[in-house]
């Protein structure tokens, strides 16, 4: 279970608070969506969950399976099952996709006391998972994300997620930059990972994605806090009314 308690976050070198008392719980087996206007702090929340530098938690806590993770390094969190699919996946020139995937997969397996994958085992798994995501295997021989289209980058994120078998999946605007076919492939990939042992936090600005990845709950983030929580119909409501109700002065 993910428990975010009264989380206050600001940038390390600026005084401006971004998250101001955000509280949220995602039980295992559930998929929760976070929606909110641009600039409301959705990516900040995602980064703070993954442990990116540059943010300061001034109050509150984040518990994953009952354990506070806010002091942990990103790789330690990953070993504990935390995975962030980036809004803007990074390009790593010179590091082949396969090398990256294998290094990452074996690093987390080692920390989870699982046997590392041998080369043939690894290749078999990657080939299978890549095929399901419509990713050309040859593409994985190229440097990570370099020269990939927006859609290819997002699919590559989901492949990484599938390889690392996380228990907490945070997807930041995975739908942005995807055409309808790619959206379907990516959503199928995410849905395939839904399981009673996994919690998922799906961040999106648009309702569209939630037609494909149907959430158990929808939260609206604005002014640094969750303003409203509802079922999947809340997403549809936001689609018609927009975020106007939430973009004015803080409630």
């Amino acid at each position: 279970m993910l428990e975010i308690k009264n989380l206050h976050v600001k940038l390390e070198d600026e005084d401006k608070a971004i998250l101001k008392g955000l509280t949220l719980t995602v039980p295992k087996g559930e998929v929760h969506a976070i929606m909110g206007p641009n600039g409301s702090g959705k990516s900040t929340l995602a980064y703070v969950l993954a442990g990116r530098e540059g943010y300061e938690i001034t109050d509150g806590d984040i518990l994953w399976n009952g354990e506070s993770i806010i002091e942990m390094e990103p790789d330690e969190r990953a070993a504990k099952g935390v995975f962030l699919a980036f809004q803007y996946p990074m390009e790593i020139p010179g590091v082949a996709g396969l090398t990256f995937l294998r290094t990452a997969a074996n690093a987390v397996r080692k920390r989870r006391d699982m046997a590392e994958l041998s080369t043939p085992e690894f290749l078999k798994v990657v080939k299978e998972k890549a095929a399901k995501l419509n990713i050309d295997f040859e593409m994985l021989k190229r440097p990570v994300n370099v020269g990939f289209s927006g859609g290819e980058k997002k699919r590559s994120e989901i492949l990484q997620m599938a390889m690392l078998e996380p228990s907490l999946c945070v997807l930041d605007e995975t739908d942005s930059g995807l055409d309808i076919d790619a959206l379907k492939v990516v959503s199928d990939g995410v849905n395939a990972l839904r399981s009673p042992d996994r919690a998922m936090l799906v961040i999106t600005h648009y309702q569209r994605l939630l037609n494909h990845i149907v959430p158990d709950k929808v939260h609206v983030l604005a002014h640094g806090r969750i303003q409203r929580t509802g079922g999947k119909e809340l997403a549809l409501e936001l689609e018609t009314s927009g975020y106007a109700d939430y973009t004015g002065k803080a409630a």
Binding site: D75, F83, P93, A104, A107
Partner: peptide, 23 residues
């Protein structure tokens, strides 16, 4: 880039080594 690698479970020292080598 170090963050991107470590968020995938790769320890910092290995991530840095990988990035230096790739450079």
């Amino acid at each position: 880039l170090v963050f991107y690698c470590t968020s995938r479970g790769i320890p910092t020292a290995i991530a840095r080594g990988m990035l230096i080598e790739s450079f």
